[in-house]
């Protein structure tokens, strides 16, 4: 299993702060994200601007993940609380 975590607006969008997905072997974060998009099409517009972390380290969509890893997705946050 692969653990996914969503923050801020992504948590609202998916309705979950975390979820687990089945993972057979090593795959890229991008591939995981493609599957997520079929379930949550509104994720599409976030794809170019997401921050991705694998096991609490900054990563990107090309990073490889394996069962047992944790992937976190962060949206861009722009407010300065005007």
């Amino acid at each position: 299993m692969l653990k996914l975590r969503f923050f801020a607006s992504l948590k609202d969008l998916t309705g979950e702060s975390e979820m687990e997905v089945e993972l057979k072997g090593e795959t890229s974060v991008r591939e995981v994200f493609q599957q997520l998009k079929t379930r949550f099409p509104r994720l599409e517009k976030y794809e170019p601007v997401l921050l991705v972390a694998v096991n609490q380290e900054y990563s990107d969509m090309d990073s490889l993940v394996a069962p047992g890893d944790e992937v976190s997705f962060f949206p861009p946050v722009s407010g300065g609380a005007r």
Binding site: S9, K45, L51, P76
Partner: peptide
């Protein structure tokens, strides 16, 4: 970290979701 600024509508604002 971010190649370019996010598109309008991809970042929530304090005026739409509060702070």
């Amino acid at each position: 970290l971010f190649e370019r600024p996010p598109e309008v509508g991809t970042s929530q604002t304090c005026d739409t979701v509060g702070i």
